[in-house]
Write a protein that binds this DNA or RNA. Sequence first.
DNA 1: TTGTAAGCGTTATCAC
DNA 2: GTGATAACGCTTACAA
Lengths: 339, 339
Amino acid sequence: MTKMSDVAALAGVSTATVSRVLRNPETVTETTKQKVLEAIEELNYQPNMLARHFRRSQTNTILVVVPNIINTVFAEIVGGIEEEASKNGYRVLLRNSNNQIDREYGSIEHMKQRQVDGMIMLSPRLDEEILQDISEKYPIVLATAHLDETKIPVVSIDNVSSSKKATEHLIRLGHRRIAHITGQLDSMISRYRFKGYREAMKENGIDYDTQLIREGEFTFESGYEQMMNLLDQKFPPTALFAASDEMAMGAINAAKSRGVNVPEDLAVVGFDNIRFSSVFDPPLTTIAQPKFGMGEKAMELLMKKFNGEPVEQTEHILPDELIIRDSCGARLKEKLIRT
Amino acid sequence: MTKMSDVAALAGVSTATVSRVLRNPETVTETTKQKVLEAIEELNYQPNMLARHFRRSQTNTILVVVPNIINTVFAEIVGGIEEEASKNGYRVLLRNSNNQIDREYGSIEHMKQRQVDGMIMLSPRLDEEILQDISEKYPIVLATAHLDETKIPVVSIDNVSSSKKATEHLIRLGHRRIAHITGQLDSMISRYRFKGYREAMKENGIDYDTQLIREGEFTFESGYEQMMNLLDQKFPPTALFAASDEMAMGAINAAKSRGVNVPEDLAVVGFDNIRFSSVFDPPLTTIAQPKFGMGEKAMELLMKKFNGEPVEQTEHILPDELIIRDSCGARLKEKLIRT
DNA sequence: TTGTAAGCGTTATCAC
DNA sequence: GTGATAACGCTTACAA
């Protein structure tokens, strides 16, 4: 393998100069620069990045810890992170935590060993104190997360107000028996979405009926199962707000299997606006998160940390949007009114 | 930062011994090992991996180049790779190529600069000769790819026979006007799936009608559009084999929008068996690829290359499976026969 | 502007 | 079984 000293020899300069040409070309005269560049070309020289990383103790690599890359929500966020990282000359190391706390914890070792310059965690399950500790020593940004009091940069949407908006949409359509299938309640996000639901109900003077709450797991299967459960009740709900589109789809399929029509007999609103929501039958009314944009934003914040720029606010709330399609019945209602 | 020499000093041994305890504990007596371990514990020592990588010129990192991580097929394969890599103490660097050849090409620089020990490319678009060149110098494995003559390890399913199987399934259900929406035909995979379709038609004595072939782009939208196109014809098809589930879904929605019932008026078979295929209405009959398993297998092969073990065959064909659900009408037919 | 030379922290070779 | 020590290839004071 040709190394810098080979280039230096051929160009008749010192390795220091070669290094300068590579990293601070402006500090070198045009003529020597040309000589060096030619030598590099001639020898087909590639710098040994490992040596560089070691010397500078910097890797231009970030770690992204994801509960599960197979989940389209996370895949899209990772897409945004990768795009922005790439633009800034950074590389992305991917780590599936499978929602296991010890795996999340283990990935921190990577940073301690200086293998990455910083990290982005999506929907972390790690304790807030632990995260706080890490954040004091290493650059870290969280996404789709919520913290109570710490000063770690977080990129998210407002899960409470968006859920409230979703629920209110159903209320406005005349529903009062509105069920809610939550995500795992040990996750902050699920609790916040649940909170938005409760606030909407309360502010509209609707009694909060625990019979209408079910805890799911953000999967089709759990949505299906919990909906079956809800339909088995004496007074089944007329509407459902599901904390994810996958669960909404599962729930709708459960309804279909029971001959319950969506949206006629059951209005449904989901959450996330994943790729498949618009293709589903009926197309899902849902809260859209700017997933790709959240990834980009998270990486931007991390770049700021790298550059020592101050990160103004700790919570970066991106705009969400209620996307009205067919599953909530709003369009159906409009049509009925018009005719 | 505490370094190895600090540990050595505290334990009263040389750095060489500390290094041995860390990497070849069996070459050290139990007592010295304990001393060293205690010192490590006491000082909270973390080895500087950058130094180690540099010294050993090995990073325990592989690069995975993916057309687009947002595509669930690739996300699942990456999931499998990550899982297997993790088990072997390897880390996964993710790179989206966005199907751009220059981005694929650029990622090779990473290997030349020794930043990764090897790479896995999914559905590469790079020329076979270029890949061959790289393969001679660096460990590389391809997945969901096809090569004509080279000796690069490839993990894939048999796209020809599986497509043939899918098409024959439709033929067996009595269809003769079977349309095919392909993926981009500049991709080998699309051409192979197309080939399987043609073979099935030919072997069953059905004239191959170019009017029934449409080139899509592996997306909903293209499936929708091409199906609209097909339905506009004087003699529309009675069945469709789409080269991906996404396109099948788009096509089914196009049919629905025209009042064409699936599977009654149009039988559809897709390809990939993505997560959403079973939830779609109607649930998709499709060819299942062992996506996660393909990722694991690809990583296994890469590990073999790392360990200098011979990779017996260059093409590793994993089993596919025709999953019969509702979109092809087979179940409907069964039901009719039974009643 | 350019060269000299001292590291960076680990591993591997060679003695002992 | 353990220690001394020379790399590994680059960057960066500091000197010229």
